[in-house]
Amino acid sequence: MAGMERELLPFLENISSYSDDVFYAFVKEFVGDVESEILEIQRIKDVRILLQVPDVFIFLQINSKDILKLKERACFVTNDLQYIVRPGIKSNLEQFIETLRKYYKSTSTNENFVSSQTTTNAIKETTHSIC
Rank of each mutant, 00 (worst) to 15 (best):
M1N: 13
M1T: 12
A2L: 06
G3H: 10
M4W: 01
E5T: 11
R6Y: 10
E7G: 03
L8D: 04
L9I: 03
F11G: 06
F11L: 12
F11H: 14
L12R: 03
E13R: 05
S17P: 04
S17I: 04
Y18G: 05
S19E: 13
S19Q: 10
D20E: 10
D21G: 07
V22H: 08
F23K: 01
Y24F: 14
A25E: 13
A25L: 10
F26A: 05
V27N: 04
K28P: 03
E29P: 05
G32T: 06
V34R: 01
E35P: 09
E35H: 06
E37H: 01
I38Y: 01
I38S: 00
I38Q: 01
E40N: 07
Q42R: 07
Q42S: 10
R43P: 02
I44F: 03
I44N: 02
K45S: 12
K45D: 13
I49T: 13
Q52N: 09
V53D: 00
V53T: 07
P54I: 06
F57G: 01
I58T: 00
F59G: 02
F59H: 01
L60R: 00
Q61I: 00
N63Q: 08
N63S: 07
K65H: 00
D66V: 09
L70F: 09
E72D: 12
C75A: 05
F76G: 04
T78N: 13
T78V: 11
N79C: 08
N79G: 14
D80Y: 07
L81M: 13
L81A: 09
Q82W: 04
Q82V: 07
V85Y: 02
R86W: 03
R86V: 09
P87G: 09
G88N: 13
S91P: 03
L93C: 08
Q95K: 11
F96D: 02
I97E: 05
T99H: 03
T99R: 04
R101H: 06
R101C: 05
Y103F: 15
Y104P: 08
S106T: 14
S106F: 13
S106W: 10
T107C: 14
T109E: 15
N110R: 14
E111R: 14
E111S: 15
E111A: 15
E111Y: 14
F113A: 15
S115M: 15
T118V: 14
T120Y: 11
K124C: 09
E125A: 11
T126W: 07
C131S: 05
